[in-house]
Simulated assay, not measured.
Amino acid sequence: MTAHLEHTNFTVANVDATAEWMCDLFGWQIRWAGPSIDNGRSVHVGTKDHYLALYSPGNPHKATDNNYKTIGGLNHVGVVVDDIDAMEEKVKAAGFVPENHADYEPGKRFYFHDHDGIEYEVVAYS
């Protein structure tokens, strides 16, 4: 039996605001929202098969180091799109700054950071 990734869970400052821009930008939906551990709140946002579990304890601590140099750090979240140019325009319209563009085999990609400093990779395969 082969396993597949169902979800990933990470901490953000405001789960509802983050879920809202994800729904607008990526066309996802909120699958569940409610109270969670440590008097926090969680929102599950994504598709029927895969989602991100967004969590906030209400008063999260800011990241203190470069995640790429921190064991257990979240480096980036990757999303696949059909039309990378259209998605880049949506990313800009949402107030994010696309950067680090690259064409590579087998596709194209760019990155952006959200309001919490989380990096997203957007990729379209040829």
Rank of each mutant, 00 (worst) to 15 (best):
F26H: 04
Y125G: 00
A13L: 06
L74F: 06
Y51D: 04
F26R: 05
H61V: 08
A19V: 03
A53G: 10
A124G: 02
G40S: 04
A3W: 07
L52Y: 11
K48T: 13
H101N: 04
H7A: 03
H76S: 05
E121A: 09
G73H: 06
P35Y: 00
K90A: 09
N59V: 05
G73C: 05
V91A: 08
I118N: 15
G73K: 08
N75S: 11
Y68H: 13
V81T: 08
M87H: 06
A63G: 12
Y111N: 09
E6T: 12
W32Q: 14
A33M: 12
F110P: 07
L54P: 02
T8L: 14
V81R: 08
D24L: 12
G72K: 04
A93N: 13
K62M: 11
V123I: 13
Y55D: 02
Q29P: 01
L5C: 02
H50A: 14
V79D: 03
H115S: 14
Y125D: 01
G95R: 10
F112D: 01
A3R: 10
T18C: 14
W28V: 01
G117W: 06
A19H: 08
R109C: 10
N100F: 06
D38E: 15
N66C: 11
A86E: 13
I37N: 10
I30S: 11
V79R: 09
K48S: 15
Y125P: 00
H61S: 13
A102V: 07
V122C: 07
R41W: 09
G107M: 02
H50N: 13
D65V: 11
V80R: 13
N66H: 10
G46E: 02
P60F: 00
E89C: 03
I118S: 07
A3P: 04
Y125A: 01
F26T: 01
E99I: 02
E6G: 11
V123Y: 08
K92M: 12
F26E: 00
V122T: 04
M87R: 04
A93M: 08
G46Q: 05
V80F: 11
V122W: 02
W32I: 00
H4S: 14
V97N: 11
Y104V: 03
T70F: 10
H101A: 12
T18I: 06
